[in-house]
Design a protein around this nucleic acid. Sequence first.
DNA 1: CTCATATCGAGAAAGTTTTATCGAGAAAGT
DNA 2: ACTTTCTCGATAAAACTTTCTCGATATGAG
Lengths: 230, 230
Amino acid sequence: MRGPNSNLRRDVPEASLRRLPIYYRSLQEMLLSGVAQVSCADLARILGLDPTQVRKDIEMTGIVGKPRVGYPLGDLVRWIENFLGWNRPKTAVLAGAGSLGSALLGYEKFRSHGMLIIAAFDIDPDKIGQRIHGREVQPLMFLPDFVRQAHTLVGVIATSAAAAQSVTDLMVSAGIRAIWNFAPAHIQVPERVILQNEDLYHSLASLSFKLESKMGVTPTGNGISYAEDN
Amino acid sequence: MRGPNSNLRRDVPEASLRRLPIYYRSLQEMLLSGVAQVSCADLARILGLDPTQVRKDIEMTGIVGKPRVGYPLGDLVRWIENFLGWNRPKTAVLAGAGSLGSALLGYEKFRSHGMLIIAAFDIDPDKIGQRIHGREVQPLMFLPDFVRQAHTLVGVIATSAAAAQSVTDLMVSAGIRAIWNFAPAHIQVPERVILQNEDLYHSLASLSFKLESKMGVTPTGNGISYAEDN
DNA sequence: CTCATATCGAGAAAGTTTTATCGAGAAAGT
DNA sequence: ACTTTCTCGATAAAACTTTCTCGATATGAG
Ligand SMILES: NC(=O)c1ccc[n+]([C@@H]2O[C@H](COP(=O)([O-])OP(=O)(O)OC[C@H]3O[C@@H](n4cnc5c(N)ncnc54)[C@H](O)[C@@H]3O)[C@@H](O)[C@H]2O)c1
Ligand SMILES: NC(=O)c1ccc[n+]([C@@H]2O[C@H](COP(=O)([O-])OP(=O)(O)OC[C@H]3O[C@@H](n4cnc5c(N)ncnc54)[C@H](O)[C@@H]3O)[C@@H](O)[C@H]2O)c1
């Protein structure tokens, strides 16, 4: 009942999902350098993480290791791929062929991680008809039919923030089941749709705060004194 | 000893740092629509979060609210800005003027969040000399002198993954104290340097996994059966 | 062959984050 | 003026994540 393949995909901590790609990348580099076996302790040493944490994360994929040896490297890489779904290609459509959208369209590595952006849509007449990395930008109004015909499940939002919600709604009504949102907007989706926000401001806030903390800047220097004048 | 301005910047959960920008954005939108007062409960309703969590996050900025009223909206926005350091401009340099680097250079909103990318560097002779969004791409070897003269503390990595570590080392040796890394590489920095990784694969893994979980795909379909052949 | 050592896997403990509860105080209605 | 209602701020409880501990087992040395 609890064999290596009876992985239930339940209760996977978000934190583990964030670490698995890091392991995956390191493991692939090792693969190139000809390593055959790897232990959690090895990985932990390389990445500066806790060995137990690495083991717990890897256990989630369902792979079973051998004491004193670890895991066959090739197998481990495939188990992670399989667990994350990176070995099962998914098509995606992109809305918003601006600077960011173009960069995403040209990003070949998505393909090797199971994500194929097969079409781009925009509303700007100057953009429509342009070819960007081999795909012709289409009018946004063609998106629903395209999605239905290609059975596409993933939609990438790279429009302005103002347009994000309406484009999302259009995608969802066409059958999209997961939204990857790069616009800095709080968008709403039905329960059944996955929403993944890629918010640069998260990072920017964290970076800015930590840098100032480390450099000794206090956040008291701009004359705000709300509590005094109540 | 515990007044609104004696904010110690200690023990701030990473999760809170990630949520504050979301509040900030919503609050700014409210500001535009003329709202004057806002309560944590309001924010929580709008964003679909727990009111207590919102209150805890906002408390961290040091602002003091009034029962039954909440916070003056303008003040709250400024307290968050001040807490995150977004009202204190920081200069940054960018390495790697490719598709992503160009998009980042052209992204005006960084400026209003305290982050000014003032120069771009590359090693590709074809890139060097090009003007991208008003900044001329310079040879990477000029970076250290530039950083020292401009007293720049932040470095943005948008090079290939293979170059990320060496470019980081160059930046760090020139005095950079925070690295914002967009390359999918595990880079190492000294203790004193902040490292913020912007890893698309985190999101991709999460999206892919959740989509498949929701759509009922089991990760057992690719014939891996490592445990059998031991 | 036996022993020492390293690692897995599982469960317990510790730490952190999120959610619930409660008293106090400010505003609005009676 | 009094009561009701809502929200802040603080504390407590619950849930989750990370770290620690331990027994089992495979490998390599003696
Ligand atoms: N450029 C960056 O580095 C960067 C970084 C992080 C986030 N972002 C965000 O990504 C989004 C795109 O950024 P960008 O720099 O590419 O901007 P951009 O202005 O270059 O591109 C936006 C594109 O979206 C299109 N668009 C607008 N409304 C649309 C609609 N309703 N349907 C379809 N297309 C529509 C526009 O025509 C344009 O082509 C923005 O929300 C931005 O905040 C950008
Ligand atoms: N394009 C995307 O959508 C995207 C998304 C996420 C992450 N990334 C990552 O961002 C990085 C850049 O991506 P890109 O699509 O812009 O690639 P790109 O090839 O267009 O640009 C890379 C640039 O870096 C320069 N470069 C290489 N080595 C350098 C060095 N040692 N010093 C200075 N510059 C150097 C190259 O000359 C080139 O101009 C990559 O690591 C990529 O994996 C890209």
